[in-house]
Amino acid sequence: MNLPKHDRYDYVPLSKRPDYSWPDGKRLAVCFCNNIEVFGFLSGLGSDSASLTAPQTTRNYAWRDYGNRVGQWYLFDLLDEMQVPASHNLNSWLLDECPEIGERIKARGDEAVGHGRTNAERQDVLDEAGEAALIRECTDGIARHIGTPPAGWLGPYLAQTPVTLDLLKEAGYRYVMDWPADDQPFWMRTRSGPILSIPYSIELNDSPALVFRQQAARDFEDMIVDQFEEMLLQSAKWPLVFTVVLHPFIIGQPFRLRGLRRAMEKILARRDELWITTPGEIARYCASLPAGIIPGS
């Protein structure tokens, strides 16, 4: 039997990599990654609060729309209160539907990351021309609302075709977060040159944890704190990236937001030891390091 493989990166174990530090000698980078999405009404893809196989209904559309109408505004205020930057994985059509969200992102100086046109669709069902058009439309839409094109990409549902990385590099993207293979950045090969993979947790992520696995809000709070404390300990040996992944229609429910608040307070009590940043800043820093430091360079 021949095991199917890819040629995007080589295996380099953590224990065999060069050591380096983040700016100011910090060892743990901390990112709050938020997904702001728009869905079709009674059509397309979209999760449900009660059942993994539920059809698209008025109820689950409204549940998701709560995030853009209410939950995201609670989350913006919490980020302001905690004085932390965030990155926002944006469906470009969301900015057409809810332009005030884009205005708040610009006012905060947060990072906008490409996240497709809408989360009612996946890009891995498209041919190359169709996928290139989706990437281009998303990029142009975010640039129109935010003022600059996104440097990073996270596909809806983290879905990719065999040529996604090539198309993203050719569209001007510098990094992706669709490959949750590591706790450090690493360079990936494309037909037009390297693109950086930035860590993005699908474990410390409110959607699979709280919706798909139906875990409790306090479970997610404990997960955040345990992941942070262990990674802070491990970062004495090697530089790491800690990400918390959020969706405002999930974490923006007040009882869940309360747990996030407590977890953030525990993390930020160690603020002086951390590089609290965004994926884009991590990508810029990695690109500035000498060849041979970041795997794949």
Rank of each mutant, 00 (worst) to 15 (best):
N35E: 02
H88K: 04
G141H: 00
P199V: 06
G193R: 05
L45M: 09
T53I: 13
A209M: 15
Q253T: 07
G25I: 11
A216N: 02
G280C: 05
D166G: 07
R144P: 00
R261A: 11
H88G: 03
L95S: 13
V125Q: 09
E121P: 00
L158D: 02
H115L: 09
D96S: 15
D140Y: 05
I36K: 04
F220A: 11
V176F: 00
N205Y: 10
S288F: 05
P180T: 05
R59T: 07
F249V: 09
P13T: 06
R270I: 14
P194I: 07
T243C: 08
A143S: 09
T58C: 10
C98Q: 14
P248N: 11
S288L: 04
S21D: 13
L134A: 07
V84E: 10
L204R: 05
R262Q: 15
Q253E: 10
E170Q: 15
N205G: 04
T57E: 15
L260D: 07
I251V: 12
Y11E: 08
D226Q: 15
R144V: 00
Y173W: 11
D219H: 12
R27S: 12
Q227C: 10
F39L: 08
P208D: 09
I101A: 01
V163G: 00
R213F: 13
Q83A: 14
D166F: 07
P150L: 04
S47F: 03
L257C: 08
R59P: 00
A236C: 04
P295W: 03
L134D: 01
L94T: 15
G44K: 14
T278F: 04
I195W: 04
S49Q: 12
